[in-house]
Write a protein that binds this DNA or RNA. Structure first.
Length: 592
RNA sequence: CGGGAUGUAGCGCAGCUUGGUAGCGCACCUCGCUUGGGACGAGGGGGUCGCACGUUCAAAUCGUGUCAUCCCGACCA
């Protein structure tokens, strides 16, 4: 490809609306252009990168025994009603009407459609297992698209779905897919960590996310918090991570349960200071409004809540499905408890009946307590009266024992330890480029997708689903591989392998040598660009660095001595070698 | 949806406070010159100042509304 004909416009400055480096560089280097918020054009260079990522994914998926297909991007409402997600999915699901006023949606994921396909096509256990995948644009009307391709509304995803007759079968595929995932990202030049995660709205029991770790506090492209252990392979998303806590004082030492004045103590630290006790004997209360109903969550004073865990604990305790969870506003606290932030507690909650005369008195409110509160004794809670706390509280005796669950946010900086091997736990940022779920029968049951087993009985498919963000993976690669001059594409996904630069196109010798090198590379299938533009050397070098060609061969003044310059983008290493040696070096790097 | 900010040429910005000919750098076109890290000179093209309404003799500038974009919190590949 001649640079003069390549459809690319590099910019001299970063776009003003970009925040993270991958977004800035992809726009500036002419890979993408925004069409609307979270919606991008993939220009020719980007498309080459995306196709390379896709090819790697295809090879690994096919190798893992999955078969490629393509499902519709527009899907009918009725299918989503079958799974129950039409009402649950929320505004991320882009809904529309066709000319006959029938409800449709743009596919944010394809569990419904694939389940439809499976129930039509798979009737017998003899046809199982089956693993199907597609690579396609998805649309999710994100609340807040940002960071360019990292969180777009339209994005390219590989989604695979497995069908098995047994849980063992599912676990087997899951393992095979996990291995394939590691290879995919490895081949893309990305180091990833497999972390345990919350299964979220898609449902299911076991799930792992593949994270590209971003160990750089300046860089906020890593939207997820990942806890990991350096000794064993424990790693978990913060919405799922747990930890072993250091020893702490759990007995408040109060001799009796008593309502005590604690004026102007709005925070746990202030209460602890006033009462002269450690924060670990204070039981912190938090009110969440869950689908308009207030719920009380309790945790040890020095710890924080993890909302996803709170939500899961509520669901596990029979709360049904939850659409919205948020912390209560101060005004709501006053209205419900007659007390403000800092003075709410679990005492006298379920005992009094609601009455019209005193609507401020709480009625039966769900209480969920973190495991850290279970062993606490003679502890402190809010008095449900401003400027008052109860001290010397014990479960059972003073407050009915609540339901206990792990709803705590792990905190590595507080000396917490790995739950597996007791070694220090670390926290880092990560970009989630893929995930794998053991779905079970969630969709097959709801959508009546069944097969006949060996005993002639109908049973729902046991499903798994496996996603890779193709466009996000490419973007994460830029996030990990760049410097102040531009992108440093890993060879496997670079849009082109090399660029040949005749410094001065009006110099016959330089042009001739450059063209010879170009032809030799092309002849062996190297993806190469020749910068035939009548530009000054600086312009060409800047563009080459910005776009991120892994190799640059420059034919300049040294051609008179029979030498060209060979530059490796990744290392910045520069060598003066003969044209043939330069060509050979590229062949070698590409295994040709 | 809540909080903050910004909309002026393809990109990056000034002008707005104090209303009166729409500007600068880069990019683009022509000519010259130059050719190893985003040269230089001369000439040129390109803008309903996001949109609407209002105030005014007169609005990029003041007011109201609206839309879009970005950032901080709840979604997820």
């Amino acid at each position: 490809m001649k640079m003069s004909q390549l459809f690319v416009q590099t910019l001299r400055e970063f776009p003003s609306d970009a925040e993270v480096m991958s977004h800035k560089l992809l726009v500036r280097a002419g890979f993408i252009r925004k069409l609307a918020s979270g919606i991008y054009n993939y220009l020719p260079l980007m498309w080459r990168v995306l196709r390379k990522v896709e090819t790697i994914v295809r090879e690994e998926m096919d190798g893992a025994g999955a078969q490629e297909l393509l499902m519709p991007f527009v899907q009918p409402e009725e299918l989503w009603r079958e799974s129950g997600r039409w009402d649950v999915y929320g505004k991320e699901l882009m809904r529309l009407k066709d000319r006959h006023d029938r409800g449709m949606c743009l596919g944010p994921t394809h569990e419904e459609v694939i389940t439809f396909i499976a129930r039509e096509g798979i009737k017998s256990y003899k046809q199982l297992p089956v693993n199907l995948y597609q690579i396609q644009s998805k649309f999710r009307d994100e609340i807040r698209p940002r960071f360019g391709l990292l969180r777009g509304r339209e994005f390219i995803m590989k989604d695979a779905y497995s069908f098995d007759s047994t849980q063992e079968g599912l676990e087997k595929v899951y393992k095979v897919m996990a291995d394939a995932y590691t290879r995919v990202f490895d081949r893309c030049g990305l180091e990833t960590k497999s972390v345990q995660s919350d299964s979220g709205a898609i449902g299911g029991a076991v799930s792992h996310e593949y994270m590209v770790l971003i160990d750089d506090t300046e860089n906020n492209a890593g939207e997820d918090n990942v806890f990991f252990c350096k000794k064993c392979d424990y790693a978990a998303n913060s919405n799922h991570a747990t930890s072993i806590l250091p020893e702490a004082v759990l007995d408040g030492g109060f001799s009796e349960c008593k309502l005590t004045d604690t004026p102007n103590t709005f925070t746990v630290e202030e209460v602890a200071g006033f009462l002269n006790v450690p924060t670990t004997v204070i039981c912190k209360s938090m009110i969440y409004i869950v689908d308009k109903k207030p719920v009380m969550a309790l945790i040890r004073g020095d710890k924080q809540f993890e909302e996803t865990k709170v939500m899961n604990a509520l669901i596990a305790n029979g709360f049904g499905s939850i659409n919205e969870i948020r912390s209560a506003a101060p005004a709501e606290l006053e209205e419900i408890f007659g007390a403000g932030k800092g003075f709410i507690g679990p005492k006298n909650l379920c005992h009094s009946e609601h009455s019209e005369e005193s609507p401020a008195k709480p009625v039966k409110i769900e209480v969920i307590a973190d495991l850290t509160t279970k062993e606490m004794k003679n502890f402190v809670i809010g008095g449900n009266e401003n400027d008052k706390h109860y001290v010397g509280v014990n479960w059972g005796a003073d407050v009915p024992e609540p339901k206990f669950a792990d709803i705590r946010l792990a905190e590595a900086e507080k000396g917490e330890l790995c739950p597996v091997c007791n070694e220090p736990l670390y926290l880092t940022k990560g970009i989630e480029v893929g995930n794998i779920f053991q779905l079970g029968t969630k969709y097959s049951e709801k959508m009546n997708a069944v097969f006949t087993d060996e005993e002639g009985k109908e049973r729902p498919f046991i499903m798994g689903c496996y996603g890779i963000g193709i466009s996000r993976t490419a973007s994460a690669a830029v996030e990990r591989h760049h410097d102040e001059w531009g992108i440093k594409w890993p060879i496997a996904i670079a849009p082109y392998h090399a660029i040949v630069v005749p410094v001065n196109v009006s110099d016959g010798k330089q042009s001739q040598i450059a063209n010879e090198i170009y032809s030799k590379l092309l002849a062996k299938g190297v993806e190469v660009v020749i910068d035939d533009r009548d530009e000054r050397a600086g312009v060409k070098f800047k563009d080459a660095d910005l776009i991120g060609f892994p190799f640059r061969i420059t034919a300049g003044k040294t051609v008179d001595e029979g030498l060209v310059e060979f530059k490796t983008r990744e290392t910045g290493e520069v060598e003066k070698i003969s044209p043939d040696e330069a060509v050979e070096k590229v062949f070698k790097a590409l295994g040709k």
